[in-house]
């Protein structure tokens, strides 16, 4: 059943963050959590548009349907979209195949994000992370303090009591704010259904060209994907539980081609949603390490 308290809490968080910010920005990754976060931001400031831009850190390896959805949502919300790609990484040809997911993520996502934040001088950055996603995220504050260089020190987090958020920072320091901290995957889906929030069609099952890699189905979204000699993608009915860079995002076989059937599958799922994300498990405690370096 839908919990309106979660919505109200998130709106309270968003307003509080903006009230304390000099230059806020919302990270927009185009996925379902970002879609919900964007929707909540629009609600928080209705009838005005949210008083901050969206920022998409573009690795150039997102699904084509994600780019199309991004264009649609920017038009609909009337918000400004900033995109940033790590040009040095791009020039050096950093990609998820030859450089490995860990190095690729560091250069094209974490470094790119830090570049974008420094370039624009944002002091408060909204992210769509949830505590139920992963163990180190379960320990993170809603207002997460980052020292100069965007580093997260899990042992030096500010105490966070009641709904009282400390938004004070020194020049050069930043805050990451997570309005969806207390949402679960099921909450996200139920809310998308109740509010009829547009999502990327990749979340619904459809016949798609895929190849098997490391126990996961990877969709061959464009000609850049390196196939084995003699290999050709097979067509299977698959959908995605999370969306990231297409070569690193595993699909699950599914017949769920409506929101209702996706929700039914999610509630009965036997595997966590981040199972499809290869970058979570590429080294021990990997998410915690990435977060310390500045990853969301």
């Amino acid at each position: 059943m839908l919990d309106r308290g979660l919505e109200s809490e998130s709106i309270e968080i968003i307003r509080e963050a903006v009230a304390g910010a000099a230059k806020p920005v919302m990270l927009y990754s185009i996925g379902k959590d970002s879609s919900v976060m964007l929707h909540l931001a629009r609600k928080a400031f209705y009838p005005a548009p949210p008083p901050f831009p969206l920022l998409h850190v573009d690795t150039t390896w997102k699904f084509k349907e994600m780019y199309a959805h991004r264009a649609r949502m920017v038009a609909e919300s009337g918000m400004t979209l900033l995109t940033h790609t790590n040009q040095e990484g791009l020039a050096a040809g950093v990609n998820p195949f030859t450089h490995g997911s860990s190095y690729y993520t560091d250069v094209m996502k974490t470094e790119a994000l830090k570049q974008a934040l420094d370039l624009h001088g944002f002091d408060v950055v909204f992210g769509g992370a949830r505590r139920d996603e992963e163990k180190s995220r379960a320990k993170e504050r809603i207002f997460s303090f980052r020292s100069k260089g965007h580093r997260w020190d899990p042992k030096k987090q500010r105490p966070e009591l009641w709904n009282l958020y400390n938004t004070h920072i020194q020049p050069g320091e930043t805050l990451r704010v997570f309005p969806l901290s207390n949402w679960t995957e099921a909450d996200i889906w139920e809310y998308i259904r109740a509010e009829e929030i547009p999502i990327v069609p990749l979340y619904l099952a459809k016949a798609r060209p895929v190849v098997r890699r490391g126990g996961a189905w990877i969709m061959v979204d464009d000609e850049r994907y390196p196939l084995e000699p003699g290999e050709s993608p097979e067509v299977r009915r698959v959908r995605f539980r999370t969306l990231g860079c297409y070569p690193l995002t595993g699909a699950v076989e599914s017949g769920a081609d409506t929101l209702d059937s996706v929700i039914a599958e999610t509630l009965g799922a036997r595997n966590s949603e981040r199972q499809g994300r290869l970058i979570d498990s590429d080294q021990p405690g990997s998410m915690e390490k990435k977060k310390q370096e500045g990853y969301f």
Binding site: D132, K135, S136, A138, K139, P154, K155, N182, T184, G285
Partner: peptide, 19 residues
């Protein structure tokens, strides 16, 4: 116990939220 230090030392350092 989500943080590396916690798992290595077998203790809970910080508040963790579970759903």
């Amino acid at each position: 116990d989500g943080l590396q230090a916690e798992r290595e030392q077998g203790i809970t350092i910080d508040v963790a939220y579970r759903f």
